[in-house]
């Protein structure tokens, strides 16, 4: 179980950095947005990992069964909000990319800079 705990945090770091790499290194604007999405999902994993209680269950009461151990509801609430914020940012970003394609004819950052330089 201890191994699983450590593994969760290491996977969080790895996925975070994969997403971050895609955002900074890739040139295609949609690829950057995809990377941003992965980057944010890793953060969600961090919060939910810390909310888990061993032997616990989802924090929903059941009248028949009492005396249960529950996992922490607060990070779940925060991440619900964060997921919605993430999709809103993605939607807006995609709208911008569509407009860029219409105005510049390309969605590759280096080509856009080239066009603006002329």
């Amino acid at each position: 179980m201890e191994f699983l705990g450590i593994y969760y945090y290491w996977v969080f770091v790895v996925v975070l950095m994969i997403g971050f790499y895609a955002v900074v290194a890739k040139v295609n604007l949609i690829k950057k947005l995809i990377g941003l999405s992965i980057f944010q999902s890793a953060v969600f994993l961090l919060y939910i990992t810390m909310s888990k209680v061993s032997g616990g269950t989802a924090p929903i009461f059941n009248d028949e069964i009492t005396g249960l151990l529950y996992s922490n509801p607060l990070p779940q609430v925060l991440i619900l909000t964060a997921i919605v914020v993430g999709i809103s940012t993605t939607a807006l970003g995609l709208g911008i990319v569509v407009r860029i394609k219409e105005e510049y004819g390309t969605t590759e950052e280096n080509e856009i800079q080239e066009i603006d330089r002329r």
Binding site: S37, S51, T57, A58, S71, Q76, L80, V84, T90, L94
Partner: peptide, 21 residues
Amino acid sequence: LDAADVALTEAAVGAGISTVL
């Protein structure tokens, strides 16, 4: 990880709507 609400939201919003957009 016992986060049922969050799983539902991630599936509906992340896998569903995000892919469509």
